[in-house]
Design a protein around this nucleic acid. Structure first.
Lengths: 201, 201
DNA sequence: ACCTGAACACCGTTCAAGT
DNA sequence: ACCTGAACACCGTTCAAGT
């Protein structure tokens, strides 16, 4: 008999959905609690029922970016993807969302995010013959490289867009070019180092 | 005959000095234009005579952190420091300033900062036998690693300090430990990769 | 369980005007 | 050349209160 339409209340994941929409339209600088609230037709304070603070919400956004629960990480049954493939996949995910690398970078640094890719990378390292500690180090190294490189790249992309519309990028000392293949070249260097450390012939 | 005490007007470097002081006392989150202005006993708007915006001021702070003009970079006369030494030196500089890695990371991503260490790293790569493009890639790779690792580390340090005084770090899923030697291990892996790529025996 | 309304203590940036 | 004063359009967070 409860007839009233129950005016569409939100849950955690609806809030994250809204945040993803705001992110893709406004970027990280425009991703404010107020804009997210507006997207949901709700007061800002309502968001604080779902998340204790903005960083926690950003961590949930980060989870979504790197793939929280779906089929990216092949767990253990699947044939082990090698480090290069895992790294490239992580990069694609970061690039698929505006300012993805920066958001993930800060959630990770704050210890609010665990990366599925990190697990896969450590496993790949062990399969190459590294011991557990060295495999963790190798995974950290690759993750730092991927995020650092992609962060840098996304900022440049944004600056180029602004610059094209704005024509005032005289501050930056140039080279908006840089080969996309440069990512792969650096990645191959790191993987070569991992192999060398593991003593693979 | 101009007698009046000329009430201590500031220049660019005095503004950066003040910013460095505010940074070391309040960290990056507390580094606001208003606090810098207060440190100088000046109105906020006065800062905009010296710098067009906050990012430009942060770039000047970054220059200071990584060593803008002094004797860090051995230019060409001096015996070439190897990549590991250059990287360790960069890390020390970042660690020497609160939130140093994060500040430098964003200035770098925005293209507002050029790293003396990058030049040294590229030279080290060429000396190992890499061609110019590969040497640039190697330098980028090392820089991304050093900044990413140190950023992560500084955030953990801060979280640990806050957590100790605050006892509310239940958000972070643990491991504030992590060996300091892990940085060197990762760095050695990358350098091994550079050597392998260069084909050194 | 989920939200409103209002407030607090801040932000970066601009601009006319002063000396 | 360097700064003031005042304003504009924002922020994240808290909290009593509502349903």
């Amino acid at each position: 008999m409860n007839a009233a339409p129950a005016p569409a209340r939100n849950d955690k994941s609806a809030v994250v959905d809204a945040a993803m929409r705001v992110l893709s339209e406004n970027g990280l600088p425009g991703l404010s609690m107020r804009r997210i609230a507006d997207e949901l037709d709700v007061q800002v304070s309502a968001l604080y029922w779902h998340f204790p603070n903005k960083q926690a919400l950003l961590a949930a956004v980060s989870d979504r970016i790197v793939g929280d629960a779906d089929a990216t990480s092949g767990s253990e049954g699947i044939a082990a993807a090698d480090a290069e493939v895992v790294a490239a996949r992580l990069r694609d995910r970061l690039l698929a969302h505006r300012d993805g690398a920066e958001i993930v970078s800060s959630s990770l640094a704050l210890g609010l995010l665990s990366l599925p890719a990190h697990v896969d990378l450590a496993r790949a390292g062990r399969e190459l013959g590294l011991d557990d500690a060295a495999a963790e180090t190798a995974a950290d190294t690759v993750v730092h490289y991927v995020i650092g490189y992609t962060f840098h790249e996304q900022q440049r992309l944004y600056a180029a867009v602004v610059g094209a519309a704005d024509a005032s990028v005289d501050l930056a000392p140039g080279q908006v070019d840089e080969r996309g293949g440069s990512f792969d070249a650096g990645l191959r260097m790191i993987v070569a180092g991992i192999r060398a450390t593991a003593g693979v012939s």
